[in-house]
Design a protein around this nucleic acid. Structure first.
Length: 209
DNA sequence: GACCAGGTCCTTG
DNA sequence: CAAGGACATGGT
């Protein structure tokens, strides 16, 4: 709620297509978004920004394009693997969206290189499933705000679901707001003490959202 | 030069 | 299950 008033609405997750969101979700693992953007535009420029094209790429070629995002060996492998599995299992993202959340989670979960957060990001932002994405910022923020019953990822999800329910747009928005907020105020590990929001939120976030 | 970024996997105790 | 290391580039 507080964050909302500061930044307003946003659809969030940069990316023109669902395919690009999937790729971005993998590339951004422990990596600054500015580095990810370079990789994405390189892929786009070569006309390869589709799961179909990516699935058929040679790993060295893909590595050449995503080098700036770091961890390029694992990420290239993951991108190719995810792309070909989706292609084989569903044909394309559109078809995937019609499947139930549980089935999609079971499909994504065993893929190497797709961890909890990446999976949630794909489910939420590419597949429109009502899942709240918990990242390092979220844990830190709620921790700093003194939300005690929300110290594990699972607890945080439950906590957020209690306040925003299954409203897809709100879930998308809330994670986006946290990331934006964090980028401005939370450069260092302990959340910035001079942040105006945190002062207010010692009351705010805990019981509204 | 050190530290960090919208993590994940694998190995140890 | 918690902790520790590896993976890697680019910005401050």
């Amino acid at each position: 709620m507080e964050l909302h008033s500061l930044y307003g609405n946003m659809h969030w997750w940069p990316g023109d297509s669902e395919d690009e969101i999937v790729v971005g979700a993998i590339l951004t693992q422990n990596t600054a978004w500015s580095n990810v953007e370079k990789s994405l535009s390189r892929i786009r420029k070569h006309g390869l920004m589709s799961l179909e094209k990516l699935a058929g790429m040679d790993k060295p070629d893909l590595i050449g394009m995503i080098r700036s995002s770091g961890f390029y060996n694992q990420k290239a492998r993951t991108i190719i693997e995810v792309s070909s599995r989706i292609l084989q299992g569903f044909g394309r993202i559109e078809a995937m969206k019609r499947e139930p959340l549980g089935k999609l989670a079971d499909f994504l979960e065993p893929i190497k290189g797709i961890g909890q957060e990446t999976m949630d990001a794909i489910l939420c932002y590419a597949l429109d499933k009502p899942v709240f994405v918990v990242d390092k910022y979220t844990t830190r923020l709620l921790g700093r705000l003194g939300v005690k019953d929300a110290s594990t990822v699972a607890e945080i999800k439950k906590y957020v679901n209690n306040s925003v329910g299954e409203d897809l747009e709100k879930l998308k928005n809330f994670h986006g707001l946290i990331v934006n907020f964090a980028k401005e105020y939370c450069r260092s590990k302990p959340l910035c003490k001079s942040c105006p929001l945190l002062k207010k939120c010692d009351f705010g976030l805990t019981n509204s959202d």
